[in-house]
Nucleic acid binder design. Structure first.
Lengths: 173, 173
DNA sequence: GTGAAATGGTTTCTCAACAAACTAATTTTG
DNA sequence: CAAAATTAGTTTGTTGAGAAACCATTTCAC
């Protein structure tokens, strides 16, 4: 058996058996999941433990840039199930980061706005988000990032059977 | 407000407010997660309801191509936590798809092999996997797929702080 | 040669996310 | 105009996945 040079060799380890991957070698779904995990972890490390989770950044950003946004709109743009959005918005409301106001002309729905506290936190998170983006750019470069973003958007838009927007999303795992 | 032409317009809907995304527009982590969901769903649809879940395909393939593979090796290559691998292997064992044999020279560990039943199921799943791959290729093309695979591999390998292999993996969501 | 550390695998618990069902409100249909 | 259908958001339950702790075994350090 030959040593597997792609493995971490920071500490002497006995040679590992080479594992055949077959069509898993370039199995995009598996790679997408693994890459997502790494990206998520990188952002979470930068955020540290004293702020909200990376997923909240998405919601905070949507509310920050779109005062009065509704839960349905947040769910659609973040590609999260509405029940997940309910929980996130409730938690942020409890922590004084946003406030929600019933719409006058549609009492089923309400509008969300950032509070002063929420705006402060959002700015801090955004700084970390830009650091995270810089990490990604350093690893793959601007040109490959451009292709990556374009390719992922096409997968998202055209892979579904009727290419409908899957606003509700699916289980990540 | 202008109608958002990127939205599904198969049924007349009132015009939607344009939502500002800011740096979420090209936020790679979000796109990776969404693309993964779509890829997962596409594969799951092809598999239908009478077979195992897409995640089992990974394990079955590793066992099929590497008779005698250990759980640690499976976890590493599939980038799954060992507790998740335990559960998957147990379920496959219970369904008669694999058999596990304690190693003579290391009684902590054991080797997994596909049964005849498991080989049959794996072949059926592999046919579906190739259909799934054909879907992806049709959407993004071979050249962009090559770049996608290369880019994702670099993110997986080089985004971690010490670029160690995160065999344990992280939470997909 | 012995105790400590590491490893392989298991078990239990927590968490995030969605599915499904629900309530209240609005829109559609006849 | 009233009933049916749809929508916005909430609640409850399920599931997948990993974190942490555990046990048994092997390897390492002295």
């Amino acid at each position: 058996m030959q040593p597997d040079d792609t493995m971490d060799m920071t500490r002497a380890v006995p040679e590992r058996r080479k594992i055949e991957l077959g069509l898993l070698e370039n199995f995009v779904g598996m790679l997408l999941r693994a890459a997502y995990n790494e990206a998520f972890e990188d952002f979470a490390r930068l955020l540290g433990s004293d702020t909200l989770k990376p997923g909240f950044f998405t919601v905070l950003t949507l509310v920050a840039l779109n005062p009065g946004i509704t839960q349905v709109e947040i769910g659609r743009e973040a590609r999260r199930d509405k029940s997940s959005v309910t929980k996130a918005l409730r938690q942020m409301e409890d922590e004084g980061l946003i406030r929600r106001v019933r719409l006058e002309d549609d009492r089923r729905s309400y509008a969300s706005y950032l509070t002063h506290e929420g705006a402060k936190l959002h700015r801090r998170m955004e700084i970390k988000a830009r650091e995270h983006i810089a990490h990604l750019d350093a690893v793959i470069g601007v040109e490959r990032k451009r292709v990556l973003v374009e390719t992922l958007n096409d997968l998202i838009a055209d892979l579904p059977p009727s290419a409908e927007e899957s606003a509700g999303g699916t289980r990540a795992s």
